[in-house]
């Protein structure tokens, strides 16, 4: 758990402590006790941990929805204090605006920036094509399947050209087959977009399939248990190959042991 400052650090978490006030009561819940972590520029970092380990809270804090009650979160050396278009978020519940057509959802960030309509539609169409949604641009979100909604949400985030994409268990609500397709597509899309990704999941398989590095958190309140490097080449990252890849199987089992809290096999 070293936090050596390297020149290519994009986001730095320094002894971050996160609490949130529970909806009804006045009680505060400690989600993350103390996390120090460097997210490197243009890496695909996955945080994995059991539910209640504070991984989604971590995303909220980096997105700027929630202020840490201790420590610091910086991006390019500047303290994060509020949400901003430099950090795009993909939510588990998609968060597409139901009153806007798919293309207007995808073009929304550009609209906020004041990009003229023709130009922002052109950009939106490019990202709809990348995410296999070209035929759905005139639909409303409720007409889409779960997988299509999440593709649209990814397209919306990418069309806004953020420096970092924060993904909060984005594929948790879709069926298993769709999830595998979306994971493969994300690998491909990320190859093209090449931006920093922080991806949070409770699925060990998903973590090892997607990540350059996998951070394992302890059960809540979350702390970093270990960081596992995944050096499987991107070209092999499809389920057909990965399922038989000994390196993938070895890393998956290693992370699984970490997550389940059993002693690490030597």
């Amino acid at each position: 758990m070293t936090t050596t400052q390297t020149t290519d650090t994009k986001i730095r978490l320094d002894a971050v402590r996160l609490e949130y006030v529970k909806e009804e009561g006045r009680s505060r819940h400690l989600a993350v006790e103390s996390i120090s972590l460097d997210i490197r520029d243009k890496e695909f970092l996955v945080v994995v941990g059991p539910s209640g380990c504070g991984k989604s809270t971590l995303i909220s804090a980096i997105a700027g929805f929630l202020k840490p009650t201790g420590g610091h979160i910086t991006m390019d050396g500047r303290e994060i204090t509020r949400p901003g278009a430099d950090r795009g978020v993909v939510f588990q519940e998609y968060a597409l605006l139901p009153w806007k057509r798919v293309i207007d959802n995808v073009a929304l960030g550009l609209k906020f920036k004041g990009v003229p309509k023709a130009e922002r539609y052109a950009t939106a169409r490019r990202f709809l094509a990348i995410t296999n949604l070209a035929d759905a641009e005139q639909k409303f979100p409720h007409e889409l399947s779960g997988g299509m909604k999440q593709r649209a949400a990814v397209a919306r985030t990418l069309a806004n050209a953020p420096e970092v994409m924060l993904m909060d268990e984005p594929f948790a609500a879709v069926d298993a087959q769709t999830r595998m397709t979306l994971q493969e597509e994300l690998v491909r899309v990320w190859e093209q977009a090449r931006l920093t990704v922080l991806f949070v999941t409770h699925s060990v398989e998903e973590a090892v399939f997607l990540g350059d590095r996998v951070v394992v958190l302890t059960p809540g309140p979350g702390r970093i248990k270990s960081i596992v490097d995944v050096s499987i080449p991107r070209a092999r990252r499809n389920w057909q190959e990965m399922n038989q890849d000994p390196e993938f199987i070895r890393l998956r089992d290693e992370v699984l042991v970490q997550v389940r809290g059993q002693p690490v096999a030597a």
Partner: peptide
């Protein structure tokens, strides 16, 4: 208003008026 819509718009760069 579902908070997630507000969060989504803010992280897409919406000003208060937008």
């Amino acid at each position: 208003v579902p908070q997630v819509y507000v969060n989504a718009a803010r992280s897409l760069g919406a000003t208060r008026l937008q």
